[in-house]
Simulated assay, not measured.
Amino acid sequence: MALGELPSGSDDLHLRTCPACRGELEALRRVVTAARAPESEDIGLLQPPAELWTGIATELALTRAPAGAVTAVGEAPDAVPAEKEERVGSPAERGAPTPRAARRPLLSRRARFSVVLAACAALLGATAGSAVTWWVTRGAGETAAARTRALDSLRPASTGYASLRGTGAHRSLTVQVKGLPMTSGYFEVWLMDRSHTKLVSMGALDPDGKAVLPVPENIDLREYSVVDVSVQPYNGKPDHSGKSIVRGPYAG
């Protein structure tokens, strides 16, 4: 998102309600803006810590630091991979002029790259930690909502989600409904066609409003593309009661 990609609906909703993640997104956007900005002599960038170059050099097997980079011992010579290092004569030795004005843009770009790299490393390290925490601690209901499709609520206090997983003989329909009404009966899950005139009973919801129900291979899901959850009385009749709670297409 910091690079300009559009977020998913669930991510956009989370950002609206999570100040911590909004702050991290803005911090990353500032890094991207700094990296994309044109060259300027008055950009107030921070000096990266000395240990940053040490880590980069170790990872890339470099023997020298780039111009403008700060090392643990305060040196800043050119960086060359160890396996490809070779001495190149200085411009003066090659007979080429080396005016200070010609050298400054190159040094500025190198130093700026080091600074942006340092900022990215610091910010991404912090973001990774908090992102993992978010994914681990976020509620199961929010995770389910992000991976499934919301059903239409036919009763104001009820909300539901449904998704289809697997293929062939190993398909399963996952349904979750919150805000179930009080009843002396039970809640049945159905697959319907779009006209709501043809339906197949799939099974009952658990007391907590959840169910993972196997879908027979001979059911044509191109025709039965709608999920319905109804409240059913214990009257021994297999027919739909006509009292639906949630209904709509499932994800998958």
Rank of each mutant, 00 (worst) to 15 (best):
Met1His: 14
Met1Trp: 14
Pro7Ala: 13
Gly9Ala: 15
Ser10Cys: 12
Cys21Arg: 15
Arg22Tyr: 10
Gly23Arg: 15
Glu26Phe: 12
Leu28Pro: 03
Arg29Phe: 05
Arg30Met: 12
Thr33Gln: 15
Ala34Trp: 06
Pro38Tyr: 07
Glu39Val: 12
Ser40Gly: 14
Ile43Trp: 12
Leu46Thr: 14
Pro49Lys: 09
Glu51His: 11
Thr54Phe: 02
Gly55Thr: 04
Ala61Gln: 04
Ala65Pro: 03
Ala65Arg: 04
Ala65Ile: 02
Ala65Met: 08
Ala65Trp: 02
Gly68Trp: 02
Ala69His: 06
Val73Met: 03
Asp78Gln: 10
Val80Cys: 09
Pro81Ala: 02
Glu83Ser: 11
Glu86Ile: 07
Val88Pro: 09
Gly89Thr: 08
Pro91Glu: 05
Pro91Phe: 08
Pro91Ala: 07
Glu93Lys: 14
Ala96Cys: 13
Pro97Gly: 13
Pro99Gly: 08
Arg100Phe: 13
Ala101Tyr: 11
Ala102Asn: 14
Leu106Ile: 14
Leu107Ile: 12
Ser108Val: 09
Ala111Asp: 05
Ala119Trp: 10
Ala121Ser: 12
Leu123Gln: 14
Trp134Glu: 01
Val136Gln: 09
Thr137Ile: 00
Arg138Glu: 12
Ala140Cys: 00
Ala140His: 02
Glu142Tyr: 00
Ala144Lys: 01
Ala146Ile: 00
Arg147Gly: 00
Arg149Val: 01
Arg149His: 00
Leu151Ile: 01
Asp152Thr: 09
Thr159Pro: 00
Thr159Asp: 02
Tyr161Cys: 00
Ser163Val: 06
Ser163Phe: 02
Arg165Glu: 10
Thr167Cys: 03
Ala169Arg: 12
Ser172Arg: 15
Gly179Pro: 06
Gly179Ile: 05
Met182Lys: 11
Met182Glu: 14
Tyr186Leu: 09
Glu188Ala: 12
Val189Ser: 01
Trp190Gln: 06
Leu191Tyr: 06
Met192Cys: 12
Asp193Tyr: 02
Val200Thr: 08
Pro207Met: 01
Lys210Ala: 10
Leu213Cys: 06
Pro216Met: 04
Glu217Thr: 12
Glu217Leu: 11
Ile219Phe: 05
Ile219His: 06
Ile219Met: 05
Tyr224Trp: 07
Val226Tyr: 06
Ser230Ile: 02
Val231Glu: 13
Gln232Asn: 08
Gln232Tyr: 01
Asn235Asp: 15
Gly236Ala: 04
Lys237Ala: 10
Pro238Glu: 09
Asp239Ala: 11
Asp239Lys: 07
His240Glu: 08
Ser241Thr: 06
Ile245Lys: 01
Val246Met: 02
Ala251Asp: 08
Ala251Trp: 03
